[in-house]
């Protein structure tokens, strides 16, 4: 039996896999928005929209966590 935690980990792994390839797209959207002067929080929200288009199965809170982890260092809490 696969626990909820294992299932979540599997989804994280899928997002980051080379097969999917959405990570550089999400990171680029975030980086370009911040580079154009958008606040970190706005860029994070927009990058999350991009991630969820590629992975509509991800719930919003989970998608936010993934994007925060990908762009770690650029997001202020």
């Amino acid at each position: 039996m696969i626990s909820g935690e294992d299932d979540e980990s599997a989804r994280f792994a899928a997002c980051e896999s080379a097969v999917c390839g959405c990570r550089p797209i999400v990171e680029r959207a975030y980086r370009e928005l911040v580079g154009r002067g958008r606040p970190d929080r706005h860029a994070l929200e927009a990058a999350t929209v991009v991630l969820r288009w590629h992975h509509p199965e991800l719930p919003e809170p989970e998608a936010v966590l993934i994007v925060e982890r990908w762009v770690a260092g650029g997001v202020l809490h």
Binding site: P24, E32, L33
Partner: peptide, 18 residues
Amino acid sequence: EARGDHHHHLIDIESGEV
């Protein structure tokens, strides 16, 4: 200095280009 021209952003979801 903030630019006087007000602009918006279109985000390409397939490439991440802004």
